[in-house]
Design a protein around this nucleic acid. Structure first.
Lengths: 199, 199
DNA sequence: CGAAACGTTGACCGTTTTCAATTACAGTGG
DNA sequence: CCACTGTAATTGAAAACGGTCAACGTTTCG
């Protein structure tokens, strides 16, 4: 049950550049493609009947979005670049055709989606932890690998804060307090959890 | 682009009855099936390392859940019946095999998963709204249907509060304030939004 | 080299959580 | 038919917590 050339397929589309505020597509436009964010940040916004707007999602580097466009005739929301961004567009027809032809590719795509579901559920779960300190600790434990459990950061704390639904200040404070209390240890480019209590 | 016999396939498993509090499976159990709720209500609960438990999802009649089990060796959460429920279990091996054989079936399943992804992303984005009042209002607008926009509650406010990531008290207060400010109108079993300003 | 963005810490303020108390039901069993 | 029990709904008051603002050092990158 290995992953066939799904990534290959997902890298076939054209990359386009968008300026801040520029639209990739608008609610109601014919759904013609799904997207992969190469770089930057896009917001998905839905316009409601009463004229108000609600944010559906914020897509960042590496993420795919508008997958649901595969199964709809039109986009259900706007996609707007928040900062200058590079976005790869995978044509819907080609992707659908490939998925329908090669079952293994379909399975791979399902796994991708199922993984998203699991990851998103984890994210929601994390947000249920009220305390900033506990939430950060839970996140660190989820990210941790090895023994002793350690996390190597591949992103800035500011970005981590956004994922946790906190301000960066709150994260720094939580971090400082966790370290003060001996729950974690900052090690340059990463964090070590559950440090030796005997010291 | 119609839905092929996914429902057909999803109605192939055995139906089992569960009493309130009874477990369908537990976190760590070998993943052998995905499920469809025939009737009742199930909660998916994840146990954190600190012993606490958080709700991942509440599955209701008609819903499928634990789809991610198809691609995982073990369940990553508990499933517990909240009320007496009838649940259909679709064996993982059979489903995987059928999905691999019939591409159309796969497409239908992908659509299901893509819908879940969209819903979950919406949930996360909702949690990014800091103010309890704004968050509740955004949620209400998303749930609203008809004109004038209205929401009929099929669950308790306590449950809504949990989905919003707030305490029920915070929800009641936000609700009271929204009503005081004329943004919503409580109507027995539901809520009417953006009430006529002329009155 | 200079402008951004990141990292870090402090103080203050507003909001939400918590704790507490009261009302309103719906179901249960005597 | 009614007291009895448990949960939901509701509101108040105080405490805790995170957000916001501010200030400053550091790194990054054009």
């Amino acid at each position: 049950m290995e992953m066939p050339d799904l990534l290959d397929l997902l890298s076939k589309g054209n990359v386009r550049r968008f300026d801040p505020g520029e639209h990739l597509f608008r609610q109601g436009d014919p759904a013609t493609a799904i997207f992969v964010v190469e770089e930057g940040r896009l917001r998905l916004l839905r316009h409601l009947e009463d004229g108000t707007t609600v944010a559906l999602h914020t897509a960042r580097g590496g993420e795919t979005f508008a997958e649901a466009a595969l199964f709809a005739d039109a986009y259900h929301c706007d996609a707007v670049a928040e900062v200058e961004s590079r976005v790869r567009a995978i044509p819907k027809t080609a992707l659908l055709e490939a998925l329908g032809r090669d079952p293994a590719l379909g399975i791979a795509f399902m796994r991708l989606l199922a993984g998203h579901v699991r990851e998103l559920r984890g994210r929601v779960e994390l947000r249920n932890v009220r305390s900033a300190q506990e939430r950060l600790l839970a996140w660190l434990r989820m990210q941790a690998v090895g023994s002793p459990a350690a996390v190597r950061l591949d992103r800035t704390w500011t970005e981590v804060a956004a994922e946790l639904g906190l301000t960066r200040e709150a994260v720094y404070r939580a971090l400082a307090r966790l370290e003060r209390e001996g729950a974690v240890l900052r090690r340059g480019d990463g964090i070590v959890l559950g440090p030796p209590r005997g010291v």
